[in-house]
């Protein structure tokens, strides 16, 4: 088995805004080891979000190769990308992005449903919720949960399919400092105890200093931590 969960070679991304071409990524290469905790930092406009979209397989690079968990994904079609996202990427968003009408359990079950899992779905979702410490609240809806609890549900949802990477975009950005700290602790614990590879996109240096490696972006290029 390959030692690297992420291998990116010379990724570029060019957006066309009318007649103007915007070069969001200008050739980015880096690798992430299995079990590593990496943060991606950079000022706004540095290509941080674009890189996150490429890592999360939400978008395709204009050129370059991207290999996620041993699979070349830079040439895949939309539905194949959806399957890769489902199996290999767990997303945690700044604004939680839970379905407001569904219970915590149903929210966590969602990726399993898209994966076509029909047996033991509720059981797996319950275990994921136990893992993040929400065993008591599986039938609550998002509006009955605090911000920190909502983000825990989101983390459970990200983990339920046992993905290759957990990709968190400003996971503490919408939380008060206490719950933010708890969430960071949870994420780091998951890495320590389960060996989950974690990539955190942030502009908060206090978050970044808790990670093993910081990749700094500037004007679409990696200026530090590319390894």
């Amino acid at each position: 088995m390959n030692d690297y969960v992420i291998e990116a070679y010379d990724l570029t991304k060019i957006y066309k805004m009318g007649s103007v071409e915007v070069r969001a990524l200008a050739g980015v290469s880096f690798k992430v080891r299995r079990g590593e905790v990496v943060s991606i930092m950079g000022p706004s406009g540095s290509g941080k979000s674009t890189l996150m979209n490429l890592i999360g397989c939400l978008d395709q690079p204009t050129s370059g190769r991207y290999i996620l968990d041993g699979e070349e994904v830079s040439k895949l079609k939309d539905d194949q990308l959806a399957e890769i996202r489902n199996r290999k990427v767990g997303f945690v968003f700044q604004s939680f992005n839970l379905l407001p009408r569904a219970t915590a359990l149903a929210n966590v079950e969602l990726p399993l449903r898209y994966a076509g899992v029909s047996k033991g779905r509720a059981e797996r979702a319950r275990r994921a919720l136990e893992l993040v410490g929400l065993a008591e609240r599986i039938h609550h809806r998002p509006n009955e949960l605090s911000g920190g609890q909502q983000q825990r549900v989101a983390i459970a949802r990200a983990l339920v399919n046992e993905p290759a990477i957990l990709l968190a975009d400003e996971p503490t950005g919408n939380l008060d400092s206490k719950s933010g700290k708890e969430i960071m602790e949870l994420i780091l614990t998951l890495n320590r105890e389960r060996g989950t590879t974690i990539i955190i996109v942030t502009h908060d240096p206090r978050i970044a200093e808790q990670t093993q490696r910081v990749i700094r972006l500037m004007d679409g290029l990696i200026v530090e931590g590319g390894a």
């Binding site: 959806a82 996202r85 489902n86 898209y114 399919n161």
Partner: peptide
């Protein structure tokens, strides 16, 4: 946004 989230979680077209 919900559609975007569902797609991120692996919903196909």
């Amino acid at each position: 946004r919900e559609i975007g989230l569902r797609k991120a979680l692996g919903a196909r077209r």
